[in-house]
Simulated assay, not measured.
Amino acid sequence: MAVTHVVVDDTTTHAAAVTSGSSFYLAMRILPAAQREAMYQVYAFCRAVDDIADSTLPRAERQAQLEHWRADIDACYAGVPPAALRALAQQIQRFALQRADFHAMIDGMAMDAAADICAPDEATLDLYCDRVASAAGRLSVRIFGMPEAAGLELSHHLGRALQLTNILRDIDEDAGIQRCYLPLELLEREGISPASPAMIAAHPALPRVCASLVERARQHFAHAERVMDAATRAQVRAPRIMSGVYRCLLERTVRRGFAAPRTKLRKPRARLLWIVARYMFF
C-alpha cells in the first residue's frame, strides 16, 4: 500500500505545503524561522491525514492509510523515521512534541473515514473537535513556547472555537458529502429529525440550532482571548491572528444568516491582511 507523505523543506514551503491565501500561511509567516519550519511540518502532517479522511477511497483503505501514518509517527519517536518524515522527527525532538497529540489527530480523521458523521451527540462532537482541532493546537503551543498549563487551556478553547466556526460556515458543503456536525441534542430540542444532512440543512428551525453554537463559539473565543492576554506577546502572535481571522469569519457567517438558501462565504482578504498587520507591527 502506497501512502503519500507531504514533506516540507525550504524549497517546498510555499509551493507545496500551504497557499499564500490561507489564514495559516498568514499567521505562520510572522514566526521566527525555527518555529515557522516546525509549524509547516506539523501543518503538512495535518493536511496529509485530513486529505486521506476526505478522499473518495474505500473506507477500509482510508483507515489502513491512517494506521500507516500512526505507525510512521511511532517510528519517528523510536528514532527510525521514514525518509520522508526525517524533518518532522527533528521538530518532534526539538520542541518535545507529544506523540499522543499526533495520534489524537489521526483518531479524529479516522472518525470521518469510518462513517459519514451525522448529528453526533454532544460528547462525540466535543471529542471530534478536540481531536481534529485542539490536538493541533497542543502541538502548536509547544512550538510557540507557551507554559504547559496556559498552552493546554488555549488549545482547548481556541481549537473548539475554530472548529465550531468551520462547522457553522460549512453546513451546505458538509451536507453535500453526507455529513452534519450539528449536535443531536440541539437538533432534537428544535424538533429537527436527524434523518439526513440534507434534511437538516433545509429545516426552517436550523437558525435556532446555529444560534446556540454561535454563542458557544463566542464563549470559547472569549476564553482564549483571556489566556492570550496573560501570555507574552511573542508566544501568542500567531494564535491571535488565527483567532482574529476566525472571529471575523464567524461574524460574517452570522450576518449571512442560517436560513436556507445560504450563500457561500469568501474570506475577506483585505480584512485578513489588516489582522496580520495589527499583530505583526502593533
Rank of each mutant, 00 (worst) to 15 (best):
A202M: 12
Y128L: 11
P147G: 01
A48G: 02
A198D: 11
S134E: 03
T165I: 04
R59F: 06
D54R: 04
S23L: 08
A175G: 10
S243P: 00
D172P: 06
I241M: 08
R216M: 11
A195V: 14
E37M: 12
Y25V: 02
M28Y: 08
P204I: 08
T19I: 00
A201M: 05
G108C: 10
A16C: 12
T263H: 14
Y40R: 11
A113W: 09
M105V: 15
A260C: 03
S193M: 08
G79I: 07
P207H: 04
L31N: 01
L31C: 12
R138F: 00
R278D: 06
V227E: 01
Q90N: 13
R256V: 06
A211H: 12
E251N: 07
V227R: 07
I73K: 04
R255W: 03
Q93Y: 02
P261K: 11
A114E: 15
V18N: 04
V7T: 13
K264A: 15
D112T: 06
Q235Y: 00
E153D: 14
S20F: 09
V49D: 03
V80A: 15
A119R: 12
Q91F: 03
D112C: 09
K267D: 10
W274F: 12
L206H: 07
I92V: 13
G151W: 02
A75V: 06
T165A: 06
A259E: 11
C248P: 00
L164Q: 09
R189T: 12
G191S: 03
A150P: 03
A133E: 01
Q35R: 15
I241H: 02
L265D: 00
W274S: 12
A123C: 08
R269A: 14
I73P: 02
A270F: 14
V276F: 10
T4A: 13
A135H: 03
T124C: 10
V7W: 03
A64R: 15
P268W: 05
S196Y: 06
A87M: 11
E251I: 03
A53Y: 01
R269D: 09
E148R: 13
